[in-house]
Amino acid sequence: MDWISGIIDYVPANIGQLRQLTGNHLLQSVLPIVFGVLIAVPLAQLARQNRTLAGIMLTGSSLLYTIPSLAMFVFLPLVLGTSILSMVNVVVALTIYAVALLMRSTVDALTSIDDGVRQAAVAMGYTPLRRFLTVDLPLSIPVLIAGVRVISVTNISMVSVGALIGVPSLGRLFTDGLTRNYPVQIAVGIIITLLLALLLDLLLVLLERVLTPWARSSTTRRTRAAALDARTVAS
């Protein structure tokens, strides 16, 4: 009961700060996803066209992923010339991870497309670019989003690490709570982080549903289709 009342007291009293930290946190986790997709998709397409390139990129991305995030947050300001407290560092670092993670799943996504469909697109007279944008890309959405969902959860938790070096995010509730020995604050941080992760995941699921109307109920109506087929044959 103490916990709950503690949290109930804490939230309204600090609502301004919480709102700001949550906003910062979202920004730092969502932007890298967007940039990650924008970078990984063309790279993956390049990788699919060139075997050596594919090898280099896939190995490279695995290596990148092994760099600890804290090291990246500290190191990037030196390269980018940004302030160590800047959110840009976190966004860039997480974008790098996102690209590293998305590379493989995007290559898989593009490879998952039925070869018959691709051949048909060629036979219809698509130019390569148009085919990529209007056939390959839309069809790879389900596998692509599966990859993005993994990153979105990872990002939400990794953004908190930035708080260790002072970049504002929900992680600050952990660092503050720890130094002030104030567990309620930490609990609030955990709860909001969890909610954010859930919310983002839900949005991605919805996004997939909206973007892939064809994937729904594709088998349920088949029986009716067969019935109609029988009718056309009979007539």
Partner: peptide
């Protein structure tokens, strides 16, 4: 090539229809 292909219809075994259209 692309224009030539559009000037001919092509039907294949697995219909090769675009599943998303």
């Amino acid at each position: 090539a692309a224009e030539l292909r559009r000037s001919m219809g092509y039907v294949m075994q697995s219909s090769g229809l675009m599943p998303h259209r």
